[in-house]
Design a binder for these strands. Structure first.
Length: 578
RNA sequence: GCGCCGUUGGUCCAGUGGUAGGACAUUAGCUUCCCAAGCUAAUAGCCCGGGUUCAAUUCCCGGACGGCGCACCA
């Protein structure tokens, strides 16, 4: 069995995660986190929150998962996620119909924007053949497949909506209100942990490609001209970088840089992306990713979105494959500009100049009582055209008359009727659209990575043992309490102790079945870092044994001091330091 | 979505045209004073639908789910 098979077995048997709806045959691409998995996932999310919200001083929100169609027209997901698929009747292969057209027809580069019927016509007109078998595709239908789950908002179908394909849009669309909340001051960051949905064609590999997943995303809004990240905080953090250059080189590989070096040498193009690559290292280490099976991979120029200046993925190695667990993107002003344009709302911020600027500005104030009678219905458009011409080319107003074109018609206006003038104006600042730095984490993939990286076996007293050496503050259960025997009041005392520890805020498991060794192994398998056993000595002197998962060593601790001792242990102390 | 392979107690597997067996796990009892021990017992299964057949878990067809390859992957 491979490590992936081993883990799938453990995940099902011990309740980390399993396919959903198995009673009804299962539903591909959906997983349920069982008791252990849900706790592990929550601890991971809390750690993320601690670093990317609390430590960074960002804010967190929670947006709906269903959003109206207009949002995705603006974001580009309606077109961008809309694949046109054509299936060859001869060989059964499926191809992206829009790509076939783009490849075959020289002056079409954006076939995605066409209707499926138009694409089918183009395929017929240009005699495009199946790339796999060479059969003609002329009479084959082009089918649409959108990766977004659609639904209707309210009764009827007049108000289509979609399950969000990424949590980010829930932040972007609320920007006008969020900037008010931030008192119109850049920079500020808004985070969200939530579900996103993609109707994948082919879900695969357990939690890696699923149809419903959890994202933890940060949208850091910055002024690209004036805001710099506090790079000094991460300058010495070491990051394993697999640059685009290395990927293209025959002998290229992962090279370790400090964040400071990587920025200086230009390996990482954006200081903001570099900053978060550094910050995220802390996160990956805290949740237990094996850093020998981890790298940052730069996107090749071909896979980068057109608006992204520089883009890196964090990848973990799972069963011999590298899996993307986080995307770090510099999204520029793309998203906010789009929403500003489509919604008509103000997605900009006002940036004051250090000192007000005095500028000469050419303006017009057309005499509408002249333009109206002269040009009728076109008068308004003519006035607009004059204004835009004044901004563009004030010399056009040097003569007696000025001519503008509206809808192909020429209109000539005497300059004196345009109210043209050049005035000095004082400007206190300008409106800018913030840029966005986006680290976007796939929580399920991280849970899966941690489980695989921390799952292992060793030998204790000649017997094989399976364990998860999860970090103590990430493990679903922090401490398990056992009575050595279920008699002589040991079990009552142990149950009491379990209750006391719960009152002290610990995640506690209680187990009194089977022999003590079996109970230790059960806890090792789900990653519980500490076990406490009540024995006969406890009844005499009030001490218990504390047993450590990784070493299986034990020490005696007074029950009164147990909560404090456990806190020390979780905080990194060793048994001998107690 | 296409192709190949697969699906048997909770888990991992064996097996059969006459409805099944093991290991581990689980539960109970005995035993046991710290690492999956032993003994006894109990619980529990042939993915779904259709077809062939006297009879289908087994053969055939379709579906669901899974693995791998192709395609897809903001």
């Amino acid at each position: 069995m491979t490590e992936l098979d081993d883990l799938a077995e453990l995940a099902k048997r011990r309740g980390f995660f399993f396919p959903s709806n198995e009673a009804y045959g299962g539903t591909a691409g959906f997983y349920t986190y069982g008791p252990e998995g849900a706790a592990l996932k929550r601890n991971l999310e809390d750690t993320w929150r601690d670093i990317f919200v609390r430590e960074e001083g960002h804010m967190e929100l929670e947006a709906p998962t269903v959003m109206p169609e207009a949002v995705f027209e603006a974001s580009g997901h309606l077109d961008g996620f809309d694949d046109m698929i054509i299936e060859c009747v001869e060989c059964g292969a499926t191809h992206r119909a829009d790509h076939l057209v783009e490849d075959a027809v020289e002056d079409i580069e954006d076939a995605e924007a066409y209707e499926p019927e138009e694409v089918a016509e183009l395929i017929a007109d240009h005699g495009i053949e199946c790339p796999s078998c060479g059969a003609s595709l002329a009479d084959t239908d082009v089918e649409e497949f959108n990766l977004m789950f659609g639904t209707n908002i309210g009764p009827g179908s007049s108000s289509p909506g979609y399950l969000r394909p990424e949590t980010a849009q829930g932040i972007f669309v609320e920007f006008p209100r969020l900037k008010e909340y931030a008192r119109n001051q850049l920079p500020f960051g808004v985070a969200q942990i939530g579900r996103a949905y993609r109707n994948e064609i082919s879900p695969r590999r357990a939690l890696v490609r699923v149809r419903e997943f959890t994202q933890a995303e940060l949208e850091h809004f910055i002024d690209p001209e004036t805001d710099d990240p506090p790079l000094e905080r991460v300058a010495d953090v070491e990051v394993p970088l697999y640059s685009a250059e290395s990927q293209n080189a025959d002998d290229g590989g992962v090279e370790t840089y400090t964040v400071g070096e990587a920025v200086e040498e230009g390996v990482i193009g954006s200081e903001w992306v570099a900053y978060y690559l550094g910050r995220a290292m802390d996160f990956y280490e805290r949740i237990g990713i094996d850093m020998d099976r981890f790298r940052y991979r730069q996107h090749l120029s071909g896979e980068r979105a057109h608006y992204a200046a520089d883009c890196w993925d964090a990848e973990t190695e799972l069963g011999g494959n590298w899996v993307e667990v986080t995307g770090f993107a510099y999204r520029s002003d793309y998203d906010l500009s789009k929403h500003g344009e489509y919604s008509g709302e103000d997605f900009t911020l006002f940036r004051q100049y250090d000192e007000p600027k005095t500028v000469e500005r050419a303006t017009v104030d057309p005499d509408m009582s002249y333009l109206g009678p002269e040009f009728g219905g076109a008068a308004g458009d003519v006035a607009d055209a004059l204004e835009s011409l004044a901004g563009r080319d004030r010399s056009a107003f040097d003569g007696e008359e000025v001519t503008v074109e509206v809808d192909g018609e020429s209109y000539t206006v005497p300059v004196e009727k345009t109210g043209f003038s050049v005035e000095e104006q004082t400007e206190a600042g300008e409106h800018i659209t913030p840029h966005v730095v986006e680290p976007s984490f796939g929580v399920g993939r991280l849970v899966y990575s941690v489980l695989i990286h921390r799952h292992g076996t060793d030998e204790v007293d000649g017997e094989q043992r399976a364990f998860l050496d999860l970090p103590a503050d990430i493990a679903p259960t922090t401490v398990a309490v056992f009575p050595l025997m279920t008699k002589d009041g040991l079990d009552d005392r142990a149950e009491e102790l379990a209750h006391e520890l719960r009152e002290n805020g610990f995640e506690v498991a209680y187990d009194d079945t089977g022999n003590i060794g079996r109970r230790y192994r059960r806890q090792d398998e789900v990653g519980t870092p500490y076990c406490v056993t009540v024995d006969y000595e406890t009844l005499e002197d009030g001490t218990v044994t504390v047993r450590e998962r990784d070493s299986t060593d034990q020490t005696r601790v007074a029950v009164d001091e147990l909560p404090g001792a456990l806190r020390q242990l979780v905080g990194g102390a060793t048994l001998s330091e107690l």
